[in-house]
Amino acid sequence: MDAFTTHTGRAVPLRRSNVDTDQIIPAVWLKQVSRTGFDKGLFSAWREDPEFVLNQPAYQGASILVSGPDFGTGSSREHAVWALQQYGFRVVIAARFGDIFRNNSTKMGLLPVVLPAETVEALQSAVEADPAIEVTVDLGERRVRWGGESAGFEIDDYTRWRLMEGLDDIGLTLRNADDIATYENGRQPWLPTTV
């Protein structure tokens, strides 16, 4: 995964709540067995509407998605994260995220930023007023800046460190392989196996 320290780019406001992962990438796109080629599937049903915000010329090339609350609810499909990244997004900002989506994002280096609903709306309005406005998301300082405004966000130290270093979780866990083996020796004897 690529390290994430700070990112500056243009934003796109998605004024919808409960953007579930079935909308982010509909099930027909999940049949691929590779990790690539999902950008075309991103919001594919909604993108058929020429008025949809991602289709508006002013927002082309934006890399920060600013959504209504409960973004990424529903299905566990990590394809939603791949689709957002492959389309060009580095950050999603919302007041609340689906748990699994947020986990998937941090595994892949897509930064989910939680801001209070009023702040998200203020940012959306600022972007609508001037789509060219630059937004900076600074993970080191845990802060989002735009125009003269700025807002702090919370993220736990461990996830922040992993993202900033671009570290792979499996490699980190395998450093503790001895602990896993010790635990395995003490498991309850009646626990089932699939063999």
């Binding site: 566990s76 394809h79 499996i170 866990t173 395998l174």
Partner: peptide
């Protein structure tokens, strides 16, 4: 439920952080 990165993690380590 977990995502595909975590599926890989569990396959490789039988654990999850």
């Amino acid at each position: 439920g977990i995502g595909t990165s975590e599926v890989e993690h569990v396959l490789a380590t039988q654990t999850l952080p």
